[in-house]
Amino acid sequence: MPDPKATISFELNGEPATLAFAPHKTLLEVLREDAGLTGTKHGCELGECGTCTVLLDGTPVLSCLLLGLACAGHRVTTVEGMAAGGRLHPLQDAFAELGAAQCGYCTPAFLLAAQALLAVEPRPSRAAIKQALAGNLCRCTGYLKIYEAVELAAARLRGEDATPARETLYGHA
């Protein structure tokens, strides 16, 4: 028997959206299955890995533990909403440039968590980046390229003409 659906209106990636879905679905399920936005991934569905991170009113949250219904009237941003006008967000660009995305599965979550950090802290220290990303697991990169990409993007967002250090790309001499 199909579930009766509930309907909510909210802002999804900058546009008004109205979606109907079974009321017990999480935002993760709603995004992937009802909005067709499969850029939001999942690794445990229990809040234990951070892979499903999205922004709710600009704050990074776990979409696997957030009910779709609880998002009515709120602003939701997913990785699909980061690039604008066919141009990558500086964070996306830096992640691509440094190889901060290897398998790419945790990448959307890291990008959004980093975007939220840079929104409040345009010049984060390495320690602040580590703290801000401490809720996201990555098994490929060892996080280092991710830190460097966040730093590179932060500099560019501040208007600096930043380029990656040679050691970042080629190792130490």
Binding site: E33, G39, V79, M82, A96, G99, A101, Y105, P108
Partner: peptide, 23 residues
């Protein structure tokens, strides 16, 4: 040379289709 991977853009935009993304 240190180049981008050819699939880097797809991966940073969430466009890469993993198995569970197939419907």
């Amino acid at each position: 040379r240190a180049l981008r991977k050819i699939d880097a853009t797809a991966k940073v935009t969430g466009a890469t289709i993993f198995a569970d993304d197939l419907f």
